[in-house]
């Protein structure tokens, strides 16, 4: 394996993908968020408990590549038990970090992001790393909009 690929499939990613955290079909739950990319065949469900104040523990289950599984594993650990606005901030920060948006790659919000720094070099794998984050972000966003309207 060459150095570029080694950077992509580094130890942290392989560890998360082989033994992902919170990898379980947790039913019943309050919400199920689907993250599906028919082009590559990544297909995950996120099982989320939440109240008006905060998100509870997030579980996920499904099928996908090592990058997507590792990324969802990190998501499930970081977003669990966050309040809604912090969860939204995490999602935004992870996506910005991968997309090198406004120099976000220089200062990751969480050290766990760093394992995915090489993904930027492989445009075909960006979807793998970001699919779950984008769908969970949409879910959080919808909740926050409803909250804003309510207030």
């Amino acid at each position: 394996m060459n150095d570029r690929l080694k950077a992509l499939y580094q130890k942290v990613i392989m560890k998360h993908s082989k033994q992902p955290f919170h990898f379980e079909k947790k039913i019943p739950c309050d919400h199920i968020v689907v993250a599906n990319n028919p082009v590559c065949g990544d297909n995950y469900n996120f099982y989320i408990d939440a109240d008006t104040e905060k998100i509870g523990k997030i579980y996920f289950h499904g099928f996908g590549c090592a990058i997507s599984k590792a990324s969802n594993s990190v998501l499930a650990t970081l977003i669990s038990n966050q309040d809604w606005r912090d969860a939204y901030q995490y999602c935004n920060a992870f996506l910005a970090y991968l997309e090198h948006k406004d120099g976000a790659d220089q200062k990751p919000l969480d050290p766990a992001f760093e394992a995915f720094s090489a993904v930027h070099e492989f445009p075909s794998r960006m979807d793998c790393a970001t699919l779950g984050w984008k769908e969970v972000k949409k879910f959080v966003e919808t909740h926050l909009k409803k909250e804003d309207i309510r207030q």
Binding site: M1, N2, L8, Y9, P38, C40, G41, C65, A66
Partner: peptide
């Protein structure tokens, strides 16, 4: 092992394989 991971790791070895649904979903 997901087909994408296999395809990419094989490419690193110079082997061009196709991965995915092959337009036969």
């Amino acid at each position: 092992i997901h087909h994408f991971d296999i395809g990419m790791m094989m490419d690193a070895r110079g082997v061009a394989l196709r991965t995915g649904h092959h337009c036969t979903q």
